[in-house]
Simulated assay, not measured.
Amino acid sequence: MSKLFYGRAKIINGTALLRFEKKGSVQQLIHELKYREQQDVGLFLGNWLGEELKTIEAYKSIDLVIPVPLHKNKLRRRGYNQVTKFGQQIAKALNTDYDESVLIKITNTTSQVNKKRFARWSNNDELFSLINKEKIENKHILLVDDIITTGATIEACIQVLNRADHVTISIATMAIA
């Protein structure tokens, strides 16, 4: 994962639990989580990755876990953010806080599932906003998401989080394509 962001966004550590392949079992698992209200998938994957991360020295310095947010309209339609339980379980395993009040999605975009690489990047200007930035100043943040394809969404989040003073960022996702 570090190679994916090299030269694009500074991260301390990056990890993905699973490898995503089209029409594979990981795609089905994430589809169940996102579109069939199977939030237990996020719980299970968060427990699994959390148990792994707490044994790795580099993740013991995490001060706060923050999810990639959904726009309020999508959140209202779906009823939940698919990475909430995932992130909460990781925070619990790392004995740290989980906070959804720092990073918000301000632009409602359509799903990126069928978009090509360039369209994903060009679609990410000012999608997110940082509020309560004092909560993350001088902190090591673990940014969590469900899947990384091009990395454009995570990169946009990192750019916004870096507006706070002395913040360092690591990434953990359910899967990487």
Results as ranks from 00 to 15, higher is better:
5 F>V: 09
6 Y>W: 13
8 R>H: 12
9 A>I: 11
10 K>S: 14
12 I>R: 05
12 I>E: 14
14 G>S: 15
15 T>Q: 07
15 T>R: 08
16 A>W: 04
18 L>D: 06
22 K>Q: 08
22 K>R: 15
41 V>F: 02
42 G>Y: 00
43 L>W: 14
44 F>H: 12
45 L>P: 01
45 L>I: 11
46 G>H: 01
55 T>E: 15
56 I>D: 11
57 E>H: 13
69 P>F: 00
71 H>M: 08
72 K>W: 13
73 N>T: 13
79 G>R: 07
80 Y>R: 09
82 Q>V: 06
83 V>F: 04
83 V>W: 00
84 T>S: 15
85 K>R: 14
85 K>T: 08
86 F>H: 04
90 I>D: 00
94 L>C: 13
96 T>Y: 06
99 D>H: 12
104 I>R: 12
105 K>I: 01
107 T>I: 11
110 T>D: 10
110 T>S: 12
112 Q>K: 09
114 N>H: 14
115 K>F: 04
117 R>K: 06
117 R>Y: 13
120 R>Q: 06
121 W>G: 01
123 N>T: 09
125 D>L: 11
128 F>Q: 00
135 K>M: 05
136 I>F: 01
137 E>W: 08
144 V>F: 03
147 I>V: 10
150 T>D: 04
156 A>G: 09
160 V>W: 03
163 R>T: 15
164 A>D: 09
164 A>K: 06
164 A>I: 03
169 I>S: 02
170 S>A: 12
171 I>R: 03
175 A>D: 03
175 A>F: 07
177 A>Q: 11
